[in-house]
Nucleic acid binder design. Structure first.
Lengths: 190, 190
DNA sequence: ACCTGAACACCGTTCAAGT
DNA sequence: ACCTGAACACCGTTCAAGT
């Protein structure tokens, strides 16, 4: 294993300032926040930003790893507190809320469940996919969920629910309803 | 009613060239195709483009009215050919296919079902919403669909299904499956 | 080794001048 | 009345020069 040589002090300082400012900028202006602006607000040249984060995706990912990994650990909490099916539903709900309310997170979570999305998603993708696999598996083992569902399909459909709720209104007021419609189906109760 | 005074010959020619070129450009480069490029390819100054289409939305809308109104009339065809529930499902399927495959259509259909989306959607929004209202109403009258569903909710959820399918793969291979999952629900068959 | 910031390319939008 | 295209503002990206 090649040692990860430590960053020079000024490099590390810049790296951290960039991350902090980027998180703020994405929160304020969405995922298309101006990169030049981020560099300026962090007090570094634009070249420095590109040195640390070659693509917008890379910066977005770095700015939100924590948020995304929190979703992973949250899954385990819920799995302990609630029965499998309820745990899954509550987690999907929180996932959708984050998708809509944390600006900049949506495209990231989207590309994490995109097929053929190349290498891009590493840390952040696996965290969410791992959580989904555990929760979906547990619910299926109880017979509370269709056995033919792949975890990634559930994630994609949840992303769809988040999108639908976003159309309904900027906040996530419709998430619960649309999730219920998805799980219960659009056909009438029998 | 104020007469719509006819366009000057050169204005009309430019208008039509712009629409034709715009449709091609959106198809080729997606909804973010360069406006400057469209003007150049149409052989007009960029100011002319802005005179006819003050916003990108306006141009997108004008370029796709036909496509969208075809979806409306298609609904009526299906209503004649098939029983209500099947007609709705087939229409939603075709709607999702168009959403994914016709580049540039997605944002337009999205904003047509967005709450608080201001005035933007006129012709194209009403066409789709009218179709949905007829098909959903007929299916509900037969007891084949939950009675508490609003047509616009069905459209939003269909948009969500299209989004989910898009994540699964660029084409629409998963649309049927995801639509079925939505209508039947994620819970196991009983 | 890392940073800076000027330079370049590109795009959207406006508007004075032209017909 | 309508068109043209230069001009402006803004952004992403690269890279030579600097420490």
């Amino acid at each position: 294993m090649p040692q990860v040589r430590p960053m020079r002090a000024d490099a590390r300082r810049n790296y951290e300032r960039l991350l902090k400012v980027a998180a703020e900028a994405f929160a304020e202006h969405g995922e298309n926040a101006s990169l030049d602006d981020i560099a300026k607000r962090a007090g570094v040249g634009s070249g420095t930003l590109y040195r640390h984060f070659p693509t917008r995706q890379a910066l977005l990912e770095a700015a939100y790893v924590d948020r995304i990994e929190a979703l992973g650990t949250r899954a385990d909490e819920l799995a302990e507190e609630l029965p499998p099916y309820e745990a899954l539903m509550e987690w999907l709900n929180e996932l959708c809320v984050a998708t809509i309310q944390v600006r900049g997170l949506k495209s990231l979570l989207g590309s994490a469940v995109t097929d053929g999305g190349s290498v891009a998603m590493t840390a952040c993708g696996t965290s969410v996919k791992g959580a989904a696999t555990r929760l979906v598996g547990a619910a299926q083992a109880q017979g509370a969920l269709r056995a033919d569902l792949e975890p990634i399909e559930v994630l994609r459909l949840a992303h769809g629910v988040a999108t639908a709720s976003e159309l309904a209104n900027g906040q996530g007021r419709e998430i619960r309803r649309y999730l219920t419609l998805l799980t219960e189906g659009l056909r009438p109760e029998r």
